[in-house]
Design a protein around this nucleic acid. Structure first.
Length: 576
RNA sequence: CGGGACGUAGCGCAGCUUGGUAGCGCACUUGAUUUGGGAUCAAGUGGUCGCAGGUUCAAAUCCUGUCGUCCCGACCA
């Protein structure tokens, strides 16, 4: 490709709307242009990168038995009413009407449609397993799109669905996808970590998210340095550390604590650390009033809590509702609570000895409360704690560390959640009808591109890994008026192109500084500079973008050396 | 959905307090000089100041509304 003909415009200044490096660089390098909030055009250079990522994904999906297909974005509402998600999905589901005023939607994901296809086409166990997939545009009317391609309303996603006879089959498909995802992200040059993720009401170890480690990631992960435990903060478990264990239960005591509504204030007044207190928090779970008990210095993990309660909607109860259930906001406590109020306690709370808590009436707290003595009722004991840095690893007990990550992929065991609802069944060897066991597996393609830039950039611009670079090599003739240099550069361009090396020649009538800066911004892995040394000594310069390493080579050797460099840099990324 | 900020040329911004008919840098066009890290000089192109009302002889500027955008939070696959 000739840069003089390329539809691309680089910007010197950073557009004011962009906050993070990948977003700024994608705009400055002319990879994307914004159309509306969370909606972008992929410009020619950006789309070349997208196509490369998609090709890597295709190869890895196909290697595991995936079969590519393509399904529509616009889907009739009926299908989603059948699965129940038309009502459950909420405002994020982008609903549209056709000219006959019939309900349609712009699909955020394709479980319903693919399951409907499979239910019509699959009758026998002999047709399973299946792994259809597509790379396609998805719509989610996000409440708050942000950070460029990181969180969009329209985005490109690879979605694969596995259909198996039983859970053993699902386990195999799931492992295949785990392997495929690891390969995809390695080949893209991403440092990625699979972590245990929330799998909603289904439960179990049914989901992993693939996190590209990055400061600007929207997800927090907790991991162990000693063993390989890693999970999102939504689901991370922790070894309970109850306080007061070993003490003799003392008799309960009511203490006057005027104007002590916060844990800190109560702890200060009672002269004890916050971890000797129990907080009582009142929630509305799908419209039902629930109280939740947790150690004073801990935070409630609402994702875990929602899973325990099996609810969809969860928020704090307002003061009035709290009073209606016989408690005083700021002084809530479990002792003597109304029988009709469900009590969920964190595992730690149930083991605590001589803890303090609210007395349920204004300006009073209780000391030396003991759940195991039966001082109050607990209906459900569960892990509902938000794990923080330094907490004990649930596997080996070492302190957990935290990191931030960009969720570039998620794999998920669906079991029969959709097949049962939509009636996707097959006949087994005994002629028995069975629900098909499903899994779903997604990769955000644009988000992957953004994550690659987050992990591979410097002050000058993008530093593409060889496998996803829009062009592998750029040739820069330093002086466009010097016919000899231009001729040599053109000759090199022809030779490399003939050899199948993806080459861009900067044949613009620009000064060298402009060309060098654009080359750095656009991030081509290799740059060949054809300058006056070419005339004087017959050599050109090869510069490696990532390391800054420069070597001078004879004109006659350049093509061979470049070809070898490209090959070895691809091999380093397990792409040959 | 709550809080904060911002909409003036493709990009970055000034002008608004104190109303007088729009400006700077970059980019872009033409010419000359220049050519190993964002050149210099000269001459140009480009904006109904987000939109709609209102106040006024007069509105980018004041008032009201509205739309759009960004950030923080809440919410949510």
């Amino acid at each position: 490709m000739r840069m003089s003909q390329l539809y691309s415009a680089t910007l010197r200044e950073v557009p004011a709307e962009a906050e993070i490096a990948s977003h700024q660089l994608m705009l400055r390098a002319g990879l994307i242009r914004k159309v509306a909030m969370g909606i972008y055009s992929y410009m020619p250079v950006g789309w070349r990168v997208m196509k490369k990522i998609m090709q890597i994904i295709r190869e890895e999906m196909d290697a595991q038995g995936g079969q590519e297909m393509f399904m529509p974005t616009v889907q009739p509402a009926e299908l989603w009413q059948e699965s129940g998600r038309w009502n459950v999905y909420g405002k994020e589901l982008w609903r549209v009407k056709d000219r006959h005023d019939r309900d349609f939607l712009l699909a955020p994901t394709h479980e319903e449609l693919i399951t409907a296809h499979v239910r019509n086409d699959v009758r026998s166990y002999k047709q399973l397993p299946l792994m259809p997939y597509q790379i396609q545009t998805k719509f989610r009317d996000e409440r708050r799109p942000r950070f460029g391609l990181m969180r969009c309303r329209e985005f490109v996603m690879k979605d694969l669905y596995s259909f198996d006879r039983d859970e053993a089959g699902l386990e195999i498909s799931y492992q295949k996808m785990h392997t495929a995802y690891t390969n995809v992200f390695n080949r893209c040059g991403l440092t990625c970590r699979p972590v245990v993720a929330d799998s909603g009401a289904i439960g179990g170890s049914g989901s992993h998210e693939f996190m590209a480690l990055s400061e600007v990631g929207e997800s927090q992960i907790l991991f162990c340095h000693k063993c390989d435990y890693a999970a999102t903060d939504e689901i991370a478990a922790v070894e309970p550390c109850p306080t007061g264990v070993g003490e003799t239960p003392a008799s309960m005591e009511k203490v006057h604590t005027p104007d002590c509504k916060s844990v800190e204030a109560v702890a200060a007044l009672l002269g004890m650390p916050a971890n000797r207190l129990v907080k009582t928090i009142c929630y509305m779970a799908d419209g039902k009033f629930v109280t939740v008990l947790i150690r004073g210095d801990r935070q409630v993990n609402e994702v875990k809590l929602a899973n325990v309660l099996g609810c969809v909607e969860l928020f704090f109860a307002d003061d009035e509702t709290v009073r209606q259930h016989g408690m005083e906001p700021g002084y809530c406590g479990p002792v003597g609570l109304n029988q009709d109020v469900p009590v969920v306690a964190d595992r730690e709370v149930a083991l605590m000895v001589n803890h303090a808590c609210g007395a349920g009436e204004k300006d009073y707290h209780l000391k030396n409360v003991n759940p195991q003595r039966g001082d109050y009722r607990i209906d459900t004991v569960a892990d509902i704690v938000l794990v923080e840095k330094g907490a004990a690893c649930p596997v080996c007990g070492a302190p957990l560390d935290t990191a931030r990550g960009i969720e570039v992929g998620q794999i998920f065991k669906l079991y029969t959640k959709y097949s049962a609802k939509l009636g996707a069944r097959y006949l087994d060897e005994k002629g028995q009808e069975q629900d098909i066991v499903m899994g779903c597996y997604g990769i955000g393609v644009g988000r992957t591109m953004a994550a690659i830039i987050e992990q591979n950039h410097d002050d000058y611009g993008i530093v593409w890994p060889m496998s996803v670079a829009p062009w592998q090599v750029e040739i820069v003739p330093v002086n466009d008026k010097d016919e000899f240099l231009v001729e040599q550069a053109e000759g090199l361009y022809q030779e490399l192109s003939k050899r199948g090396v993806e080459t861009l020649i900067d044949d613009r009538k620009e000064r060298p500084g402009v060309k060098f800066n654009d080359a750095d911004l656009l991030g081509f892995p290799l740059r060949i500079t054809v300058g006056k040394k070419c005339r004087e000594t017959g050599t050109v310069e090869i510069k490696i973008r990532a390391t800054g390493e420069v070597q001078e080579v004879a004109l006659a050797d350049v093509a061979d050396i470049i070809q070898n460099l490209v090959r070895s840099m691809l091999q380093d990324l397990h792409c040959s």
